[in-house]
């Protein structure tokens, strides 16, 4: 079995940030492996443990994103592909998917795993776009993966409940972080990761047309903060009743 896992480096949403002249500025340069991708890697590792195979991670990003490939290798992936991008190009999900599809065009694999969405933008597009471009069968929002023969049995969180779907090889899955708890690399993993191969491909070596960027970010604005209301501290019986009354009389919502 050959698995590819598409991973992305994203800014840590927990780090303080602010907006200056419509631009998003992070107070600290804190970037992490997208949590959903960490779950995708974990899923692949578990499948490899049970059924054997090989895991290669693919990342498009600038040089500083390389450390995220190392993290994936330290978790246990076998090798990495670093698709090196310029700093000043603002890719959107479609252009990432385009670049990835050119990369995958001549590759052989059983499954491509993606994260269900990027933690910073919550777009959730790249995975199914990639499947569309490669004409692969796919399942999104996976919360469980099992292998039977050459197929994956994917548990998907859908609107009507959880669906069990059979996905033949080759296929693509986007993973939810509800699937598992990604392992934290141990010291041995960190040490091994340095010796694992990482191939660098400049993004311009993967020709894609310039029309691939279909959406543009015009700017950012602060979300009008919700004001903290009133805090009730005291005798539970009393404050509970007080709030219950207020919900009726002041808010009219019960």
């Amino acid at each position: 079995m050959k698995f590819y896992v598409c991973i992305k480096q994203v800014p840590d949403v927990n780090a303080p940030l602010h907006i200056k002249d419509g631009e998003l500025i992070q107070d600290a340069d804190r970037n992490i492996l997208n949590a959903y991708d960490a779950s995708a890697i974990e899923a692949a590792l578990v499948l490899r443990e049970k059924h054997g195979g090989e895991i290669e991670v693919v990342l498009i990003g600038t040089d500083k994103a390389k450390e995220t490939i190392r993290k994936a290798l330290a978790m246990g992936a076998d090798s990495g592909i670093f698709i090196q991008a310029d700093t000043d190009v603002q890719f959107d999900s479609f252009s990432y998917a385009k670049i990835l599809s050119t990369f995958f065009a001549d590759k052989e694999y059983n499954f491509i795993l993606c994260g269900k969405q990027s933690q910073d933008t919550d777009a959730g597009l790249t995975g199914s776009m990639l499947a569309g471009l490669l004409d692969l069968p796919y399942v999104t929002n996976a919360v469980g993966l099992e292998m039977t023969g050459n197929s994956l049995i994917v548990k998907r969180q859908g609107d009507a409940g959880q669906e069990l779907i059979e996905l033949p090889s080759p296929g693509l899955v986007t993973c939810s972080n509800d699937m598992n708890d990604p392992r934290i690399p141990n010291l041995k993993g960190i040490m091994q990761s340095k010796r694992k191969p990482v191939e660098t491909i400049p993004v311009n070596d993967l020709p894609t047309d310039s029309t691939a960027i279909k959406t543009k970010i015009l700017g950012y604005e602060v979300k009008p903060a919700r004001e903290a209301g009133k805090k009730f501290d005291g005798e539970p019986d009393e404050i509970a009743r007080q709030v219950a009354r207020l919900l009726d009389e002041a808010e009219n919502v019960v």
Binding site: P11, V13, L17, I19, L24, Q119, D120, T121, D122, I217, L218, G219, Y220, E221, V222, K223
Partner: peptide, 9 residues
């Protein structure tokens, strides 16, 4: 975006 901390246009 950013876990709904901010809004992007």
């Amino acid at each position: 975006v950013m876990a709904s901390k901010i809004i992007s246009s």
